[in-house]
Design a binder for these strands. Structure first.
Lengths: 129, 129
DNA sequence: CGGAATCCTCGATGATACTG
DNA sequence: CAGTATCATCGAGGATTCCG
């Protein structure tokens, strides 16, 4: 309970139901939010680039999730007034920080997927045993 | 595209829509999954402990999310055959690894919440400006 | 106490069509 | 190309009740 002296000032509290930090968490850990943040780590990408890169996203959800992340200050959107439209998305400095954490989680899952799958198998006949 | 020699074997691919890693990500980053994994870092907790600790969870979702995490091998469930029932939840070794990543993200959000809130304010009058 | 079962709501997500 | 608008769907999540 008592925060250590070295602990940074913790303004938000995710365990409190009404804390706005819950919204930020929701955006970042949303189905496509995670993948967008990870994808943009490679650099600036266009809308269609992201769409191709992230398997299964619809245009709608990609646009909406990008807006969430843009509102939270994680993603920077630059639209060039040309025809046809040209819009580039990139991570803000703040966005790079979150994406780092998110990517670490994503990486862990991708690397340790076999162990998780194995664990599920174990559970299969657990009751019967 | 070409993985570095030092890169660990990456079995899963979150960018592929059909990859089972998507399910793991869904469980871990679910609304309550994140908070459960973080809460259990402090040690073994009972069902009711978790319920009190995590503001806003319903019994149903707590139970369901715990089952997801248990199936994935992240959470260990021990039920003592006594009356009234006594069930303890704790992190498995694998679970401790994911929770580490998840907690890092959660911490970042809690600490940097002010900056995110500030970013949102900036966006407020963006169009008008 | 720790659920399981049931019913219900709403938002995330999807599919399609239209536009600057 | 990069959306927006609209309509439809599905499942996460919630409220309530019942049980060992």
């Amino acid at each position: 309970m008592t925060p250590s002296l070295t602990e940074q000032l913790r303004t938000g509290n995710l365990f409190a139901g009404e804390c706005p930090s819950r919204d930020v968490l929701k955006h970042v850990t949303s189905r496509w939010g995670v993948l967008i943040l990870v994808a943009l780590r490679d650099g600036t990408l266009r809308f269609s680039d992201l769409r191709r890169r992230i398997g299964g996203v619809s245009e709608k959800m990609l646009a909406q999730t990008l807006q969430w992340l843009e509102m939270d200050g994680f993603v920077d959107r630059v639209a060039y007034p040309v025809v046809p439209p040209h819009v580039e998305y990139s991570l803000t400095p703040t966005g790079q920080q979150v994406s780092e954490k998110v990517a670490a989680l994503a990486d862990w899952i991708e690397v340790n997927l076999p162990e998780v799958m194995a664990a599920r198998q174990q559970r299969e006949g657990k009751d019967a045993a």
